[in-house]
Amino acid sequence: MSVRPIGELDAEQWLEAHGDALYRYALHRTGNPDTAEDLVQETLLAAWRGRDSYQGGSSERTWLTGILRHKIADHLRRGSRQDAMKRDLRDEGSIEDALFKGDGAWRAPPTHWGDDPLALNEAEAFASAISDCLDELSPTQRASFTLREFEDVGVDEASRTLGITANNLYVLLHRARLAIRRCLEVHWFGGHRRP
């Protein structure tokens, strides 16, 4: 943690020190490199304008990530994204219809994955697999899932950040998990790692 006098804070230094981390954060949450770049830029500019509010109490990285998280939420709420979110919450054509029969039973039940936790030496390959699987999610599902599962942000904070109710968040998370589970079964357990 580096605490420096306010006058020495410099947006270009932030870009040097935290640019990769902020870009990675934005990219995994939005899935779009152009959007990620815009959001990092907006974040650094907002941080520069609001630099007087930085107390030095948290690390620079934490402070900047907090600003970025709100920029991502604003981005998701903007314009047509609201319609996309409503689409995500509708039942017709949902992933549940694809995975379950009319009586609610599995069409293709989950197969065994074995009992081993992810080993550290698999982490990099798994990160790449999960990154491909995240691309299958809608923007709001992706944002919900990454807030909860990457960052362990609480439900109240996550739903506030996304501007949705807790119940809507549960639906988005459930559908994201169904999709990610199916994707990993095919692309991780079916390929790289066989149980």
């Binding site: 990675r24 990219l27 770049e37 936790p117 992810l118 982490a123 990457f150 990993l184």
Partner: peptide, 18 residues
């Protein structure tokens, strides 16, 4: 398992800004 694994890799996602 997915939750535990996601948290394991959260900081290992290999991305650099172009």
């Amino acid at each position: 398992w997915i939750r535990a694994s996601m948290r394991t890799v959260a900081e290992r996602l290999p991305v650099r800004m172009p």
